[in-house]
């Protein structure tokens, strides 16, 4: 919660003094659909640091999803370079990217994407079974206050509960980065706030780099930094001197 003492200071000053987790230079992604060429990303330069909570803000088609996909090892670059902890992701093979996603990245999706045939615990266990240094599924679910819902199937959970299971699934591997694609897009305000609170706590308590994409400008207030995208370019980066407690957010 917002009142909790911060284990680390996330001011931009301290961040910039350290090596970035991600370093993107001139990142460009061009899609060819038929004869039409779409420049989804057009020369993005960006550093992302450990422990930060970053919000990518932009309209539809601004390139924020493409950037998130590229950070998550789901999409490739047309031009530019991207490194993670100094390692080049640009030239990684399919297998290396799979391992990168498995060990490093936690994903949270707009529609939760839980496996309907598995219970909450089993959905989390899917990851903890294959990750190198995972939490217990129970521990991850307890962290999201889902101890009571461990043996429920997705169809027996509300949207907010499903999203919290998805967060538990994402963090159980102790990822270096948590990528959230419109995590509250399918939820009402109250539930949305609960989910954001959970993400915020993961960021504070585990020190995980969190990247949230949204077109909901209100969410930007909870971030250390807000990156504005438009037409595949970063228009500007706003640094919030103080992160607004999630409990105060409303839209």
């Amino acid at each position: 919660m917002a009142e909790n003492p911060l284990p680390l200071s996330h001011s931009s000053a301290t961040s910039k003094s350290r090596e970035p987790l991600f370093r993107a230079r001139g990142v460009t992604r061009v899609y060819h659909t038929g004869e039409v060429e779409v420049r989804a990303l057009n020369g993005v330069d960006l550093d992302l640091f450990e422990g930060e909570l970053v919000v990518l803000l932009g309209a539809s088609g601004s390139g924020k999803s493409t950037l998130l996909n590229i950070l998550g090892g789901l999409d490739s670059l047309t031009d530019g370079t991207l490194t993670f902890r100094g390692k080049d992701l640009t030239s990684a093979t399919e297998r290396e990217l799979t391992l990168y996603r498995r060990n490093t990245v936690g994903f949270i999706f707009q529609f939760y994407n839980l496996i309907p045939s598995l219970t909450s615990r089993e959905n989390v266990a899917l990851i903890t079974d294959i990750a190198p240094d995972p939490m217990d599924p129970e521990e991850a679910l307890d962290l999201l206050e889902l101890g009571e819902r461990m043996d429920h199937f997705p169809s027996q959970l509300s949207g907010g509960q499903q999203q919290r299971v998805a967060i538990a699934r994402a963090i159980a591997k102790r990822p270096d980065v948590l990528l959230c694609d419109e995590p509250t897009g399918a939820l009402d305000v109250k539930t949305g706030v609960m989910v954001l609170d959970a993400i915020d706590r993961v960021n504070r308590e585990l020190g995980t780099l969190v990247v949230i994409i949204t077109h909901n400008a209100v969410i930007a207030d909870m971030a250390d930094r807000v990156i504005f995208l438009s037409d595949g370019k970063i228009t500007h980066i706003q640094e919030n001197p103080v992160r607004r407690p999630v409990g105060e957010l409303s839209w």
Binding site: L114, I115, P116, S117, L118, T119, E122, A125, L126, D129, F153, P154, S155, Q156, Q162
Partner: peptide, 30 residues
């Protein structure tokens, strides 16, 4: 459509869940 409703498979309901791996459970429930 809402998520498909699943439940524990017969094998698990009779207490054999220890035997089954996660993917085997998915298969059984499907």
């Amino acid at each position: 459509e809402p998520p498909a409703a699943f439940r524990a498979s017969l094998l698990e309901r009779i207490g054999l869940q220890k035997l089954a791996s996660t993917s085997f459970r998915m298969a059984l429930r499907n």
